[in-house]
Computed example of a mutant assay.
Amino acid sequence: MAEIKLKDKLLNYKIVRSQRKTIGIIIKVDQELLVRAPQTTSLKNIERLLHKKTDWILRKLKKVAQIKPAPAAKKFINGEQFSYLGQKYELIIKNSSAAAKVELFSDKIIVNYPAVQQGDYQARQPIIRKILVDWYRKQAKIKIEQRILNYKDLLGVEPNRIVVKKQRKRWGSCSSKGNLNFNWKIIMAPPPIIDYLVVHELSHLVHANHSKAFWQTVASLIPEVEKKREWLRINARQLDF
C-alpha cells in the first residue's frame, strides 16, 4: 500500500499494474482507493494525477462512506431479523410434519421445517436458507408481475418475458428481445423502490438507453426518482442474506 495526503486527508491506496495504457482511479465500495496503472508509469506520475483529481476523489469517498455495509452472515436460527417489503421480521422456525412452508404472521416470518429433515445446526442451515430463498423468489415474482400489470399499459408496452433470478450486480435488466430480468432480492426493499425498479425496466422498452427522454419517462410515473436511486445506492448491500 502507498500513502498520499490530499488536502487534509491522509489516504492509503493500492497500485495494480498491468498492460493497460492509461491510469484509472477506482473508489471501491469498502472505501479502498485503487489505482490501475501501466507497468512503466512512475510513482511520481501517479501521485501527480491523484493530486489533480483530489476534489473528485474526496467527493467520491464521501459518497461511498454513506453506503450501508452488508449485513452479518445469517445463521438461520430463531430470533434473526429478515427484511421483506421494507419491514423487519423475526425468524421463527417450527418443526412440522407437513411440507416446508413460509408464513408471515404479525412481525414474524415463520418457517415450517419438515420433521423428516431434522438434523444438527450445520445440516439444517442450508435447508432453511433454501426454503426462505425459494419463498422470497416466489413472492418477488408475484409482486413484480402485479406492478408490471399496473404500469405497462400506462407506458404502452408489453414485455416479452419476465424472469426473477439472482443477479450479482444488477437489480434489473431489459434485453433487446423485450425480456425483463429482476433480482429477487429487491423484494426486501420498500414497495416504492420496487415500483421504481419495475418502471425503470419497463421504460427501457420505450428507450433502450439512459437518455434524458428515458429519465423523463420514468419520472412521469415515479415521483422523486432521484431519491429512489439514492436509496438503492445507500441500502443495496443491506438487501441480502
Rank of each mutant, 00 (worst) to 15 (best):
V16W: 03
V163M: 08
K5F: 07
R161N: 09
R147Y: 04
K185C: 12
G156L: 10
R229Y: 10
S97G: 13
P223M: 08
K94G: 01
Y196I: 07
V225G: 04
R233P: 03
Q118C: 04
R36W: 01
R129A: 13
K74L: 13
L155S: 03
L61M: 07
K53P: 06
F105Q: 15
K108F: 05
Q66M: 14
K9T: 08
W184G: 03
R147G: 07
I128A: 05
Q238L: 11
Q118M: 11
A37F: 09
E90V: 14
S97T: 12
D153S: 07
R17C: 02
K185L: 14
N160I: 05
Q117A: 11
T22S: 14
L197A: 02
A98H: 15
T41P: 00
K177V: 03
L49E: 07
S220F: 01
S106T: 11
E224A: 15
K60T: 02
I194W: 06
L239T: 04
Q238G: 04
V111R: 01
Y136G: 03
Y84M: 11
I110H: 01
Q238S: 09
P191K: 05
L149P: 00
T40A: 13
A99T: 10
L58F: 11
Q216K: 14
D134N: 15
A100L: 02
S220D: 07
T217H: 00
K166C: 00
K228P: 07
F105R: 14
A123T: 14
E80A: 03
A115F: 13
A98P: 01
L11T: 08
E90D: 03
P192W: 01
K185P: 09
P159G: 10
Y151S: 00
P192R: 02
E226I: 12
K5T: 15
K44L: 12
R17D: 07
E224V: 01
K62I: 04
K88N: 15
I27C: 00
S83I: 12
I186M: 15
R20C: 02
L155A: 09
L91H: 00
V163Y: 15
H51K: 14
W184S: 07
Q167K: 02
N95L: 13
V164P: 07
K5C: 11
K68L: 15
Q87P: 00
I144C: 03
I142N: 12
K52P: 04
